[in-house]
């Protein structure tokens, strides 16, 4: 029980570069715990994105590859196809996965690649200083939507989980959040499941995690968590969008 606060072995004992109150840190811990609990750290290879998580290759205690912006699912495919015995995951932001890397994620999902994708949706480009992301909510001001995102000009935010769930390829897609302790537990289960699926050879699994960016949202960490609850969750509903295990049962 005291173990709750212990650092997972798959998480490096270093100070991360994330801003105070940024939930990237929590999500890192959940990924590391999942790897620990499944006992796969010695055969896992992670793929880091270009985004605030670019230095993830220093934070996970497994082998890592750094991909070009948006290309992590293709890099994962390369690794997994030549060494199917490895457990391969990508960790990507919304600019990385849902903008520049849309083609790669759609086709990795469509092929049903047996990989795990952790998709961190904070509705902004954190790393580059707060530009609009494909997931930025309508009305939100960013440095490239200075008058607030206007659906007529900048279009509507993209719901990746729902979109990918229309494909035949994926085995499991769920959207979770980490803005309350209960939800952190739920997110943990989902992430673990996404890795377990790969171990069992079930195929493409993606967990979308709603995340904060207090720095570029111009908010305190607490305000940022409230924004996730009050503004993001209504547009990005939490839940399971695809689950091949459940299919047939409730359909």
């Amino acid at each position: 029980m005291a173990k709750v606060f212990e650092r997972p072995k798959a998480l490096a004992d270093v100070v991360t570069h994330y801003c105070p109150g940024c939930t990237h840190g929590i999500i890192h811990r959940l990924v590391a715990e999942a790897i620990d609990e499944l006992g796969i750290v010695d055969r896992t290879v992670g793929v880091a994105p270009v985004g605030c998580a670019v230095l993830a290759y220093d934070y996970f205690e497994c082998d890592m590859q750094e991909a070009a912006h948006g290309r992590a699912p293709a890099v994962c495919t390369g690794i997994k196809r030549v060494r199917p015995d490895l457990i391969v995951f990508s960790y990507q932001g919304d600019g990385d996965l849902a903008s520049i890397g849309t083609a790669e994620i759609v086709h990795a999902a469509a092929r049903g690649e047996n990989i795990t994708v952790i998709f961190v949706n904070n509705g902004i480009y954190g790393m580059t200083g707060g530009q609009m992301a494909p997931t930025t909510l309508v009305g939100h001001k960013t440095t490239t939507s200075p008058y607030g995102r206007d659906a007529k000009v900048q279009g509507h935010p993209v719901r990746i989980s729902e979109m990918l769930a229309t494909l035949e390829g994926p085995a499991y897609i769920e959207r979770v959040s980490v803005h309350t302790p209960q939800l952190v537990n739920r997110a943990k289960q989902a992430i673990k499941r996404a890795f377990a699926n790969q171990v069992e050879g079930k195929g493409f699994s993606l967990v979308e995690v709603l995340s904060t960016c207090p720095t570029n949202w111009g908010m305190t960490p607490v305000e940022a968590l409230q924004r996730v609850a009050n503004e993001m969750v209504p547009y990005y509903p939490l839940g399971v969008f695809k689950d091949i295990d459940a299919e047939g049962e409730d359909k």
Binding site: S99, T128, T144, S145
Partner: peptide, 16 residues
Amino acid sequence: GYPITPQNELPEYMAR
């Protein structure tokens, strides 16, 4: 455009 450091102020200026 598309964001990337160190040229972000240009698309940002244009957006305004």
